[in-house]
Nucleic acid binder design. Structure first.
Lengths: 336, 336
DNA sequence: GGATGAATTGCAATCGATTGCAAAGACGGC
DNA sequence: GCCGTCTTTGCAATCGATTGCAATTCATCC
């Protein structure tokens, strides 16, 4: 039981210890200029009272925060919620990597209303660097900030004229991989499901088209757009299945879409994989737990997160970085 | 193209505008003491250069950050990753609620090594309030901090002597609901799957036991512990199924466990729901997309997030709050 | 013309830490 | 006893904003 209230600032702790604030600061920082006995006395006092220095003041003085901003721009999504386990998975991996380095994560879900959303965070002084998950349709805002703000890494597609650093998988290769797999399984009437306003999805779609063209099924292969998730998407899927008679292969732009598609097929009395083969994208943890287990294109998100954080820290240190494109991998399970 | 570099502090902007820092501060804050023409001139200058005030300095001066800490304590989980979509769902809803109020979210995943992890965040000055998702096995740390730190809301179980505010569902009722449903379906050899070191899970298990006792199946009903997710859990499940012959009903402590269980049953040639009925818990978005769709106990996380944030803001305003226990709801789908 | 008061703006303190530099104290050597 | 050196500690500036209070300007009124 303390009679005086617990000290909350260094000056209060200094008064308790009978020394100056600077001595307390140095003692807690382990500065060797401070006498061992003094340091130990102050450390004991701090421990005893559970003293915790004010990080905001510290951050202001040091001009760094040991915090990384992680931004999810939802530019092209009507729906406001994060429902794709893909995001949690990558956020979880990022949190792991950051925690290892003693950094915190400022998570922002932004629905862009102007092109200043990224600049606001970048110049607020609240974060030492920024990771953006997915370009959405916000290339302009990303480019603008990248001109003057170095510590920025984006998960997503590697685009021609882009000046910012990205980490991602080869989406075109992934789309091709998924599609060729269906064709090898003897599927001929294929559709692609995904919202191609995001560049990653557009690249996967391009990969789908390429594989279709290679196999000479241009005429019978269709490419269709559908939102990412939710009841609307499910209903839309039912409509698509009713319209597209004879479809025997589906390439989905994400596992969540694939799973909804399987459910829609089920509702229409189509068996997966007997009547229709389905390939997802991402290999989210749930993919191997659904029935049938999901054939999918695996993106190594643990590796991706590690790369993003590694690059980001090097950028923070002032070392220029280049983008990385990882190779996606086909994981064959029951749905194809 | 600016010849001078862009102003990054108010004093630089003030120099540009030919006024003092205080005038800039007041102008940007919309203080009516400032002449309209002056204010407009300064605002235009700020807009033109994309000026963004330093939030760290602002936070220090105002002693508030408009940031809420969201903490995921992983005390009882061997596995370090966030893989349960339950977390993403609740984080997404919290992010929505906070964004609406113009607040940011500092996300911390902590693997508690001592009992100071919560205090460190509480007294760092970096957040105006804290939400803890799940008590895990950290009741002691929560209690300790709650003594001296008001703005704290915990998602989880409402426990007898607890001094902090919680929001959650009635886990005992949920467990009972799920179990009674299986019993009504004619199931008699039931098992509960979940890690009861977390108090929420322990309460669900107690509800399971109560329903079993009510129906007089104490002898044949078992209660078993299993980790939350991952390949280990799946293998453990296979082992359990092999040992527990004749099981015809499973109450899972989460949807993720339920889905893994269905997959294990499938691997052992048991049909769901023909041979075994399975009930999950949470009603995560994926629950209605798996095949068979999952019967589950729905927790209204949107409502829960809204309640938590509402309580937290009232606590920040100094208004004492009480805990809320929401009523869980049985959602019957195909798996039972 | 001078007093009064309202409208604007600036000065300087403040939030709580860190750190360069100076000062004080300890100690030994001559 | 005095001086130089080394250790240890404190003073005060700094990070970049906000804000109470004082100062200035200017119009108005008698």
């Amino acid at each position: 039981m303390d009679i005086a209230r617990r000290p909350t600032t260094m000056s209060q702790l200094a008064k308790l210890a009978g020394v100056s604030v600077s001595t307390v600061s140095r003692a807690l920082a382990g500065n060797p200029a401070i006498n061992d006995r003094t340091r130990e006395r102050i450390a004991a006092l701090a421990r005893e009272h559970g003293f915790q220095p004010n990080m905001v003041a510290r951050n202001l003085r040091l001009q760094r925060t040991e915090t990384i901003g992680v931004v999810l721009p939802l530019g092209h999504q009507a729906d406001q919620h994060l429902t794709d386990p893909f995001f949690l998975t990558i956020i979880g991996h990022l949190a792991d990597e950051l925690a290892q380095r003693g950094f915190d994560m400022l998570l922002k879900k932004v629905v862009p209303r102007d092109d200043q959303w990224l600049r606001r965070l970048a110049e607020s002084g609240r974060v030492d660097g920024i990771i953006v998950i997915g370009q959405s349709n916000q290339q302009a805002a990303l480019e603008m900030v990248a001109q003057s703000y170095q510590p920025l890494v984006v998960w997503g597609a590697s685009l021609p004229a882009q000046t910012y650093v990205t980490v991602g998988t080869d989406n075109m290769a992934g789309g091709t991989l998924a599609t060729r797999h269906l064709i090898e399984r003897g599927r001929r009437r294929l559709i692609f499901l995904g919202d191609n306003r995001a560049p990653e999805i557009a690249q996967r779609e391009a990969g789908f088209q390429r594989a279709c063209d290679e196999a000479g099924l241009g005429a019978s292969a269709h490419s269709l757009r559908v939102g990412l998730v939710g009841e609307d998407a499910y209903r839309e899927l039912l409509g698509i299945l009713d319209r597209e008679v004879g479809v025997d292969g589906i390439v989905a732009a994400s596992d969540v879409i694939a799973i909804a598609a399987i459910r829609a097929l089920e509702a229409r009395k189509c068996s997966v994989p007997r009547d229709v083969s389905v390939v997802g994208y991402d290999d989210v943890p749930i993919a191997e737990h659904v029935v049938p287990t999901l054939t999918t294109i695996r993106q190594d998100l643990a590796m991706g997160a590690r790369l993003m954080i590694a690059k980001l820290f090097r950028l923070i240190a002032g070392v220029p970085q280049t983008s990385s494109v990882m190779t996606p991998e086909l994981v064959v399970r029951q749905s194809s």
